[in-house]
């Protein structure tokens, strides 16, 4: 458990460092991916399996892609990416990720066989879902969050629409 904490904490802190101080914004974005992945791992270390999955889906998968789109749309001379070099890199990175995941799975198997606390808290999904749908607990905030997301959807489309009224001569 200590080992997993160190690995994921180092990933998160190094990612955060690179994100905050690297001069290239694209590198910063990818460092952010690393940091968010590390934090997802920390959630798993804490036995919060649902939150770890949520972190991966929403942050690593969603928010980061949104941020990269933002970088692309707001950078004038967008980063000249030499596609060929990165195509050579891709299989190497893929294999690295594969071995890393295998190692992690092995580590997780060892950890869960030792009976460390992950089993005590996880799985949390069912209990979190019941808390959301219980009128005495979190039903109202849950509905408010849904309304908020709908508002954001409509608001974002309205503001981003090309030729909206406040666009002027731009």
């Amino acid at each position: 458990m200590d080992f997993m904490f160190l690995v994921f904490a180092a990933l998160a802190v190094i990612g955060g460092l690179v994100m905050a101080f690297h001069h290239s914004i694209v590198h910063s974005a990818f460092a952010l991916v690393g940091a968010l992945f590390g934090i997802a791992g920390l959630y798993w270390t804490l036995g919060a399996d649902f939150l770890g999955a949520l972190q991966l889906l929403l942050y690593v998968g969603g928010v980061t892609v949104l941020l990269l789109f933002g970088v692309m749309l707001t950078t004038r001379d967008s980063a000249r990416i030499s596609t060929f070099r990165y195509m050579l890199m891709a299989p190497v990175v893929g294999m690295l990720a594969y071995f890393m995941l295998n190692t992690l799975r092995g580590v997780y198997a060892v950890v869960s066989e030792l009976g460390v606390d992950a089993a005590e808290a996880a799985p949390t999904t069912e209990r979190i879902g019941e808390a959301f749908l219980d009128p005495d607990v979190f039903l109202l905030p849950f509905e408010v969050a849904a309304v908020l997301l709908l508002l954001v959807l409509i608001g974002a489309v309205t503001v981003a629409r090309r030729g909206s009224s406040d666009e002027g001569a731009a």
Binding site: G62, A145, L148, L149, V159
Partner: peptide, 14 residues
Amino acid sequence: IAVAAAEAAVALVI
């Protein structure tokens, strides 16, 4: 996380 996702979307549009 839900609010942060909403915030990211609105901020990027801005």
